[in-house]
Every structure is written in C-alpha cells, then in structure tokens.
C-alpha cells in the first residue's frame, strides 16, 4: 500500500483480500479473508484474556481483577439500565462489547512496522450493521414476546395528549427504526475516519521526507508525526468509547423492550 508510486491510498487498509479456504454455501463462495482472520484473532485474544481470569480465586490476582473489572462493568451497566432482569442479556452485551473492543484495539496495532497489515474488522459497515441488526432483532423479539401487540405503545410516550398521538407516534416510529442504522453507522464511521486520518498523516510523514525541498518537507513530517502520536492516543480512547457506546445503547434499547416504559 505504501509509497510505491509516491501515492498513498488511505482506503487500501479497508480492502478485503482472500486468504484461501473457500467453499460454497447457498450459491455464495465463502472465503477465508483477512477480515475473517482478524475476527478469529480477536476471538482468540479475547478467549485468552478471559481464560486468564478464570482462576476463580477468592482474592483475585491482577489478571483476574482485570477480567472481573470488565465483567463487573457490563453487569453493573445492565443492572443500572434494565434492572435485575438485565442479567439475562449480560452474556450477549458482554460478548458484543468485548468483541468490538478487541477488534477496535487489534486494528490499532502498529503491525505495519513488521510489514503486516492489521485489519480493523469494525471499520466495515457490513460487520457493524449486522451486529446492530442482531441487537435490533433481540429488541423486537423480546418486545413482542413479553408485551405482544402492546409493544407498539412504545411509540406513544407516557402522558402524550390524545390529539398529539398522530404526530408523535410516526416520529417515535421513525426514530425507533433508525436505531439499527445509527448504531451500526456510528461505530463504522468512527473507526473508518480515525484510521483514514492516521493513514493520511502517515502519508504526510513519508511524502515529507521524500519531498524535493527537504527542510520544508521535514518540518511537515515531524509535525505530522507528533500529531499522529496524539491522534493515536485519541483513537485508543475512541476504540474504547465506541465499544462502550454500542453496548450502552444496546442495553438501553433492550430496556425499552423489557420494561416498555
């Protein structure tokens, strides 16, 4: 991807390339791609992380305390947003949160130094969109399962005056239907934008040192590099925050379905 022809394509990092192992499933060729590879890496890393916290000691060691910090974070969030019934949904929200977090963070690894291409799974709308749709489907299934057609009263907030219902209900409906898109889009855009920004800045660094007027190009490169360090730190923060936001919104939407109002 780098400066083979002096031109750096910041979108190259999002490209999916096949790594082999294809088979046919319902008329579609299923290939093992770099995207799938990084999902598997994230899953394995997550599994190792969790396995280290399974020692079940009364007084936790550092690793166990870290794992229990994550589980406690999500279970407290579910408890606070949904109540005691939230425990049922903790496994899903926890898996979602940890998967997104690990994908975000693994995509940030500076493996380009070693000549490898890290791939941020969550920078693909197909991935985040499917995760958002799964959350949305859970909301719909739980909502209709628990409340039946009464679930539609979600679109009429408490205390709405009767003449306002024809206006409020469509607005509420639209805002409800937009949820999976906003949920998936938010994560995808945050990841994509951050990685594009980092790649553009790294292009500045490389092109600056290759420039004809080297003193000017060097200044640009050094400034860009300093900026990159700051933005990398910011991106680490964003990686955590976006995973948190995804999990938080999912728990809030599930709360709508469980408790209605």
């Amino acid at each position: 991807m780098a400066a083979e022809s002096g031109k750096i394509d910041p979108m190259h990092q999002f490209e999916v390339t096949p790594l082999g192992g294809g088979f046919n499933l319902g008329g579609h060729d299923i290939l093992f791609t770099n995207s799938a590879l990084w999902m598997v890496i994230a899953a394995i890393a997550l599994g190792l992380f969790m396995w280290g916290g399974m020692r079940r000691q009364l007084v936790p060691g550092r690793w166990q305390a870290a794992v229990e910090g994550f589980t406690g974070f999500i279970s407290n969030m579910m408890m606070a947003n949904i109540g005691s019934e939230g425990r049922k949904y903790t496994p899903y929200v926890f898996s979602l949160f940890m998967f997104i977090l690990f994908c975000n963070l693994l995509g940030m690894l500076p493996l380009g130094v070693l000549g490898l291409h890290p791939f941020t799974v969550t920078s693909h709308i197909a991935i985040t969109g499917v995760l958002a749709l799964i959350s949305f489907a859970i909301v719909l299934i739980v909502g209709f399962w628990r409340h039946g057609l009464h679930f539609f009263s979600l679109f009429v907030p408490h205390g709405t005056p009767l003449p306002m219902i024809p206006i409020i209900a469509p607005i509420e409906f639209v805002s409800f239907m937009v949820r999976p898109f906003s949920l998936g889009l938010r994560l995808f855009v945050a990841m994509t934008a951050g990685h594009v920004l980092l790649k553009v800045l790294s292009g500045f660094v490389i092109n600056g040192f290759n420039a004809e007027t080297l003193w000017l190009g060097s200044i640009v490169s050094v400034l860009s590099f300093i900026l990159m360090i700051g933005i990398s730190a910011l991106e680490l923060l964003v990686a955590g925050i976006q995973a948190y936001v995804f999990a938080l919104l999912t728990s809030l939407y599930i709360n709508d379905a469980v408790n209605l109002h």
């Binding site: 096949p18 579609h28 299923i30 290939l31 799938a36 598997v40 998967f99 197909a126 991935i127 799964i134």
Partner: peptide, 11 residues
C-alpha cells in the same frame, strides 16, 4: 457473504 459468514461464526 464471506464477511457475514465469518462474522456469524466468530460471534
């Protein structure tokens, strides 16, 4: 299709 398949399997 590959993306979705592997996402569902891994998740």
């Amino acid at each position: 299709a590959s993306q979705l398949f592997w996402l569902l399997v891994v998740f």
